[in-house]
Amino acid sequence: MTDLAADTRTVVVERDFAHPPEKVWRALTQPHLIEEWLMQNDFQPVVGRAFGLSAEWGALTCEVLEVAPHSTLAYTWTGLGLESVVTWTLTPSGAGTHLRMEQTGFRADQDQAYYGAKAGWPRFFKKLDQVVAGLD
């Protein structure tokens, strides 16, 4: 039996936000805000709940794996042949939040998905920062 984790790649993006974890958390968990920076969705931060993400290029099916308010959020990210897990970690830092996103599960034969994620997540982070900056 092979170790599947050893045969997969991971995309990690980290960024400091000049906003408290509570604000960043809202943008990561409220459907109308998620739609502004990521995709259309029917997300609810409830462990075990299935939800969908959709964009002009296709749709993903997801399931919430972990919810620790203002700290950790994890969910599956499945579609177009990709079975991965996205984990968000929020850490207070000075007057703001250090946000780390890790997407695991890219197989060696999934270069398009892997490089697409490497290019796409930094753009999503930029939009996320704009959404969070606009919150009261």
Rank of each mutant, 00 (worst) to 15 (best):
M1E: 13
D3I: 08
L4V: 13
D7V: 14
V11P: 00
V12P: 00
V13M: 05
E14K: 14
R15Q: 11
R15W: 04
D16F: 08
A18I: 03
H19W: 12
P21Q: 10
W25H: 02
R26H: 12
A27N: 03
A27V: 06
L28G: 01
L28K: 05
T29M: 01
T29W: 06
T29Q: 03
Q30C: 06
P31G: 02
P31Y: 00
P31V: 00
H32Y: 12
I34H: 03
W37A: 04
W37C: 01
F43N: 07
Q44E: 15
V46I: 13
V46W: 03
V46L: 09
A50R: 14
A50N: 13
F51I: 02
L53H: 04
S54Q: 11
W57P: 00
A59F: 13
C62V: 03
C62F: 02
V64P: 03
E66R: 03
V67M: 04
A68E: 15
P69K: 01
H70Y: 12
T72N: 06
T72G: 01
A74W: 04
A74N: 12
Y75A: 00
G79Q: 07
L80D: 15
G81C: 05
L82T: 14
E83C: 07
S84Q: 07
V85P: 13
V85W: 05
W88T: 05
L90D: 02
T91I: 10
S93T: 10
A95G: 09
G96E: 12
H98N: 04
R100D: 09
T104V: 09
D111T: 11
Y114T: 02
A117I: 04
A117D: 06
G120R: 02
W121P: 01
W121V: 02
P122A: 07
P122R: 07
R123A: 14
F124G: 04
F125C: 02
Q130V: 12
V131G: 02
V132D: 01
V132L: 08
G134H: 09
D136R: 06
D136I: 01
